[in-house]
């Protein structure tokens, strides 16, 4: 039994079936992200865990106890909102101490815990300020401290970084992860930003249309997507429609170019499947077991990485190479051999 179990959750709003048979088991201290486009149901899952929405069917177990039916204020869960949701009439210290205060804790106890929390988020001097006197990043840190002050069993983060500037988003992301690991608190993080989800999480749940498409570590999600949606939503992806000529050895036709993957494909001969490949998997030059000739269409200099677009017949391929000072990028219009390691070509049947 896991620490937090979400079993067969279903939720409909009127005719909209927003969450469909959602299952997720989270271990104690784990950081799990729900990743997906807006409207995929990720926020609804989070709100069901918090108790703001009641699932139509299914169970939410925290260390074995079913939470469905209990009110949010009885669940002992911490939550951070996208819009900070700090109480504007209370100081930073009063905000952080709110949960302890409504629980009837002693003043001295509250003060001690508040000081500890403000220290944790690095805002020890700002306890007397009001929220409107803080920057967005500071407000969100206070919101985090407020959620953690009551020592919740589970921490829920609902797009906490979306309202912030790009730079603060990066630092706060690292900070959230560091605090989470230090406290060892079980955390669910909702985001639509795939880079955010991959960089911060132990595991990622990619959601689409109310379904969990894939659950896995960032490494698995990125390198071995199991559905086309996951592959396309996470990272940049090259996809090629190919026709299977021999499923047993993995022979396919890309336009008029034959390719052999040397492994079986779970499809009939003559079926159309999709080959997917990350830009960094391909490389310029003849290295691997499979080389194609491409005509360089575009070169984008991105600093440490150079992104190249090449035409292979009627298909387009995007590939990333590291920038090396001793190797200038190929000229546009030149014909160059491009190596595709067959192991990095993912076959997506559906």
């Amino acid at each position: 039994m896991a620490y937090l179990d979400l079993l067969h959750l279903e939720k409909s709003f009127g005719p909209n079936h927003v969450v469909k048979d959602f299952n997720l088991r989270i271990e104690q201290g784990e950081f799990v992200s729900l990743l997906g486009p807006s409207g995929c149901g990720k926020t609804t899952v989070l709100r069901m865990v918090a108790g703001f929405e009641t699932p139509n069917t299914g169970k939410i177990l925290i260390s074995g106890t079913d939470m469905v039916g209990s009110r949010p204020n009885q669940r002992n869960i911490g939550m951070v909102f996208q819009s900070y949701a700090l109480f504007p009439n209370l100081t930073v210290a009063q905000n952080v101490g709110f949960g302890l205060s409504v629980a009837g804790k002693k003043r001295s106890q509250i003060a001690e815990r508040v000081a500890e929390m403000l220290d944790l988020i690095g805002l020890a001097d700002l306890g007397a300020r009001f929220p409107f006197q803080l920057s967005g990043g500071q407000q969100q840190r206070v919101a985090l401290a407020r959620a953690l002050a009551v020592r919740p069993k589970v921490l829920l983060l609902d797009e906490p970084l979306s309202a912030l500037d790009a730079k603060i988003r990066l630092t706060l992301r690292r900070e959230i992860r560091a605090i989470q690991q230090r406290l060892g608190i079980t955390t669910i993080f909702v985001t639509h930003d795939q880079e955010e989800a991959l960089s911060i999480s132990d595991r990622v749940v990619v959601m689409n249309n109310g379904l969990a498409d894939q659950i896995g570590t960032p490494f698995e999600i990125y390198n071995h997507p199991t559905t086309r949606f996951v592959a396309e939503f996470v990272g940049t992806l090259n996809t090629f429609e190919v026709t299977v000529t021999d499923p047993d050895v993995g022979a396919v036709m890309l336009g008029t170019t034959p390719l052999v993957l040397n492994r079986t494909i779970a499809a009939q001969k003559g079926a159309k499947v999709t080959l997917a490949m990350r830009p960094e998997a391909a490389s310029l030059g003849r290295f691997g077991n499979m080389t194609l000739i491409g005509r360089i269409a575009d070169v984008q200099f991105l600093g440490s990485i150079i992104r190249i677009r090449a035409d292979i017949g009627a298909h387009q391929l995007t590939l990333d190479t590291f920038n090396r000072s001793d190797m200038p990028p190929p000229a546009i219009g030149s014909e160059t051999p491009i190596s595709l390691p067959t192991s990095s070509l993912v076959v997506l049947v559906k």
Binding site: G51, P72, R75, N76, V102
Partner: peptide, 18 residues
């Protein structure tokens, strides 16, 4: 309201304090 609720406040506490 939701933040107050999840922090353990009752409806009355939310009205009185926030």
């Amino acid at each position: 309201r939701e933040a107050a609720e999840i922090l353990g406040a009752t409806g009355f506490q939310y009205w009185r304090r926030v």
